[in-house]
Design a protein around this nucleic acid. Structure first.
Lengths: 144, 144
DNA sequence: TTCATTAGTTACCTTTAGGTATGTACGGGA
DNA sequence: TCCCGTACATACCTAAAGGTAACTAATGAA
């Protein structure tokens, strides 16, 4: 056996319990922040800004986040700035220069997402197998 | 200073490195699975199915996942079944009975999502503060 | 014969994410 | 005087998520 299957210390009941201490607005924001994790560009953008040591300019970020459009990058960066995950510094130059850096909150978030991402990546063949099996057998109809 | 800023053991470079061993299809599926985590209903539905010990019927799930429509619940459950996160058992009865249970893979996923969710919930006031500050100061324009 | 029950399915609509293509403001260099 | 380079903003379009409301299939009960 590869490893013993251990019940996690952290149950969802515990989480639900904690979430009930939150206001409705806080609960909604929690969901919003979690969904930011899996929107198409936010996490990738953050990791690009975080991984490279020098402050990153708009155009350099766009080179690294392959496939993103200007519009989406602008929107993504604004959202990340608003939530305190990155900082945006404008220099009064021509042509304009804007530098982005990760914040402490941002890298804390990345640290918390990382294990989940890695687990998902390492489990991907299992998911593939389940999908293949499902697509083979089809859906069992609810009526005879 | 509140706490020393510590580099996490699990860097994104490490993750990127691992992800490069994946095929393109596997990489795409990884992203898809991560985004499942934050779609509107999947995680909530999973946690409902997981937290209650008895197998759950369609209508009982719908009672617990407040606000979900029949259509969305059906779609969500199908997706979860396809990915091997829950099982669906149809009984040849009238009126129909269908029971859903969490799989080992499903609860493993929940276990991996839990810490992130809890961290997010516990950080929510910080996010709120950042947003408030941003909305106060407005966006710094890139040109003078 | 008609009804109630369960787990859907289907048609239709609105909202949102995200793409492409184009416009813009500024000043330095040719 | 006109073009270059940067970091956007804006208009327009498409696809997909997700909501509501109505329909369905089978059968035991009234």
């Amino acid at each position: 056996m590869k490893k013993s299957v251990k019940k996690s210390k952290l149950s969802w009941e515990e989480i639900a319990e904690f979430c009930e201490t939150l206001t409705e607005a806080e609960d909604a924001l929690t969901r919003e922040m979690v969904s930011r994790i899996s929107d198409k560009w936010s996490l990738w953008t953050m990791s690009v800004v975080a991984d490279i040591d020098e402050p990153m300019r708009f155009s350099r970020i766009m080179e690294h986040v392959e496939g993103i459009s200007q519009k989406s990058l602008t929107k993504t960066l604004r959202g990340l700035e608003r939530d305190g995950l990155i900082t945006r510094k404008v220099f009064a130059e021509v042509p304009p220069r804007v530098e982005y850096t990760i914040t402490a909150l941002g890298s804390e978030m990345l640290d918390n997402v990382a294990p989940l991402w890695l687990w998902t990546a390492k489990s991907v063949q299992r998911f593939q197998a389940c999908r293949a099996a499902f697509d083979d057998r089809g859906v069992q109809p609810a009526r005879k």
